[in-house]
Design a protein around this nucleic acid. Structure first.
Lengths: 332, 332
DNA sequence: ATGAAAGCGCTAACAG
DNA sequence: CTGTTAGCGCTTTCAT
């Protein structure tokens, strides 16, 4: 395997010149640059990642603690992974996967400098990882918004405002009896910050508007969605639904169709979900769309800023917007 | 940050003694070992991954080229990622994610020694990556079974035998009119090796048994599953279904239920899918189960064997077995 | 615009 | 059972 000094010799220049030519950290005459590039091609040289990491104290890698638990929708996780990869790629970083559940491994990759920074997905309230990660020698970014972050920067979609917005907008469209179908019960029990915050936003908005806040949990893998919908329709007679449960969306859609419900006439519905998941067959749900791409990018940007040592980096709560589609009344 | 020589000084031993104590590559008296461990704790020492990688020429990382395309079921991908992480963990390796679509980045991490080996998911026939990867200086393992592998070791579930087995077993149970519902059309068009091989196994087994091989492609995101099932039932009057399409399984199940089909009386069904995906509500499908955990483990085992330089490693086709559940007749 | 040289923190001979 | 030492391949001061 060709090394940098092989290139230096082949190009008839010094080692450091090659290094600088590659990093672009100082001016190189186009003549030498060309000879170096030729040599690189001829010897098919590739810089050694380990050597670079040692000398520069940069791994060129960002760790991502991904949730592997079954209650987290795999599709949504993959969307985040994809967005983080894209963002990392743009700053020529790679993503090192870490099992979110493996607390020890998570701390280790940081301590050993195997990653320059760590992004933690699926943070829960009082997450046991946080106190440890707060003391790490390398930057950590939370993809989530726990109320107690131990000084670790948080990046997230504003789920509280999101469901609050859904309520307000449904109210403006005449709906008075609202029901929210939230995350699976395990997710709620773990107190995933997005679940907690979405629920809170719903309840607070309802209260402010003097509405009764009816919040149901639905495990569509276990429970019959049809049954849930029938019961709900019969007992609550809701005028609107707020759905924050990607993995149940399709099943709910199906159940509503089966019941002969037409939207928005019989029922208005707002989904809180990534854009890619809100079109079901012919209908596109009105949604407060989770901007996965933007969130991922923000997390990576925060991480790289921290890596570069750009001082203190604040929290980032991405504001929600409502996208009116087929399942709500048009406002004049 | 404490380094190894800090530990050596603190423990009053030489640098190499610390190194050997940590690697376990030579005997250390328990007295010294203890002093070293104390020092490590006291200074909270962590070996530097980059330095180790440079000196040992081992990154301690396995690359995984994951498919990010939308037609690949995210849930199944996550299952594979999880299984590879687990297997890698057992050999104290981490997983570096690479966008399967990013051909250049895939080659680069290998060339730069950022990973010790690469596992490629979602291989297609005549995969353009293979000629390049075949010439890489580090081992590559295919999670897939293209007919032309360019000398790269292949590891996969035997999808050909799997659907063939499904046919044979359905035939033994009296079914004569069979229909196979295969992967989404994009997957077929790309010629993902698992799709191609599953289809071929179905067709060959049918031919051997003198059955008409009816194979349909179904994009449940786009097409109406209900419509497909109704048409199928009306036109083909199948006695059995072979389903190889994880993302459509739930919708198909629902459609069958809606049509009032009872299994196995009206229709026998065999799914080719991971075990976790074949229970839908109260019914558990008879299935040729894709042993995700085993496949992932085999891939990592092959990769580590190659990393260790354990000579030539052969292909590995994992044999299918049928798990009789609720949707086929019991054989005497 | 280019060189020389000193590390980065570890591994693994080689030498007892 | 322990120590000495020479790198691994790069980055980055200093010099010029």
């Amino acid at each position: 395997m060709a090394t940098m000094s092989d290139i230096a010799r082949e190009a008839g220049v010094s080692l450091s010149t090659v290094s600088y030519a590659l990093s672009g950290k100082r001016a190189i005459s186009s003549a030498t640059r060309e000879r170096i590039n030729d040599a690189i091609t001829r010897l098919s040289y590739h810089p050694h990642a380990g050597a670079r990491a040692l000398a520069s104290q940069r791994a060129g890698t960002i760790g991502l603690a991904v949730p592997l638990a079954a209650d987290v929708d795999a599709h949504v996780v993959m969307m985040f992974v994809r967005s983080l990869m894209r963002a990392a790629h743009e700053t020529s970083n790679e993503i090192l996967l870490i099992a979110g559940e493996d607390h020890a491994a998570t701390a280790r990759v940081l301590d050993e400098g195997k990653v320059d920074a760590l992004v933690v997905m699926d943070v829960v309230e009082d997450d046991p990882r946080l106190p440890v990660l707060a003391g790490a020698r390398r930057p950590v970014v939370l993809l989530g918004y726990p109320s107690q972050a131990h000084g670790i920067p948080r990046v997230d979609f504003d789920f509280e405002q999101a469901s609050s917005l859904a309520v307000t907008e449904l109210h403006r469209r005449g709906a008075r009896r609202l029901v929210m179908i939230g995350s699976p019960s395990v997710t709620q029990t773990r107190h995933a910050t997005y679940a907690d915050r979405a629920t809170r936003g719903f309840e607070q908005a309802c209260e402010k508007l003097g509405l009764r806040a009816r919040h149901v949990v639905h495990d569509h893998e276990v429970d019959s969605t049809g049954q849930l919908i029938r019961t709900l329709l019969a007992e609550e007679r809701p005028e609107a639904l707020v759905i924050h449960n990607e993995s149940a969306l399709a099943a709910i859609h199906r159940a509503l169709t089966d019941e002969g419900i037409s939207m928005p006439e019989d029922l208005q519905v707002v989904a809180i979900a990534p854009q890619e998941t809100v079109r079901l067959g012919a209908v596109e749900y009105t949604a407060v769309e989770i901007p996965v791409e933007e969130i991922g990018r923000a997390a990576v940007t925060t991480a790289t800023a921290l890596i570069e040592g750009d001082g203190v980096v604040g929290d980032q709560l991405i504001a929600p917007t409502l996208n009116e589609r087929d399942t709500t009344h048009r406002l004049p």
